[in-house]
């Protein structure tokens, strides 16, 4: 499907990853416009239910980004989210939904480039995967 433009929601922690995305902007780095961010104070706030709900709503990809290990503004929220995302991906595999639609990345406040690269790669991967199979049900 050449015309397919995936929709991506990005849950970004306020202190590192949102700041990293800000830096991508300040540095005028370019990345695909498919991503819309939802700011949370800590990646630890990200509930796997958000991921399931986003897929149910027909969103093609979910990016969750938090501070690097050791950098979490709240000390340890990122470790928990790493585990939550790993387990939810395992669930998705069993449900026949490509777990690559969900991605967890550590992106620091100084990694504007990494944010841009992550989005670019993720959108590319989602194009390979094609539309979220749950999208049909939504329509």
């Amino acid at each position: 499907m050449p015309d397919f433009e995936p929709s991506v929601v990005a849950f970004l922690c306020n202190w590192c990853s949102y700041a990293g995305a800000d830096l991508a902007g300040t540095s005028r780095l370019k990345y695909p416009p498919n991503v819309r961010s939802i700011r949370v104070m800590c990646s630890g706030r990200v509930d796997p239910v958000f991921v399931l709900d986003a897929l149910k709503e027909g969103i093609d990809g979910i990016l969750v980004a938090g501070c690097h290990p050791g950098d979490c503004h709240y000390q340890s929220g990122n470790y928990k989210t790493n585990r939550k995302i790993k387990l939810i991906k395992k669930l998705l595999d069993e449900l026949g939904i490509e777990s690559d639609r969900v991605r967890f990345e550590y992106i620091s406040a100084s990694e504007g480039q990494k944010f841009a690269d992550t989005v670019t790669e993720f959108v590319f991967r989602l194009k390979e995967l094609g539309p979220n199979p749950l999208k049909e049900e939504c329509q």
Binding site: S7, V9, R36, I38, V40, M41, R45, D47, V49, F50, D53, A54, K56, E57, G58, I59, D60, K135, C138, Q139
Partner: peptide, 18 residues
């Protein structure tokens, strides 16, 4: 950052993307 607030954002995005 209530659940319902975040879920509403997801729903709105879902609706837009469709």
């Amino acid at each position: 950052f209530r659940d319902d607030q975040i879920l509403a954002m997801i729903k709105a995005l879902g609706a837009c993307s469709l």
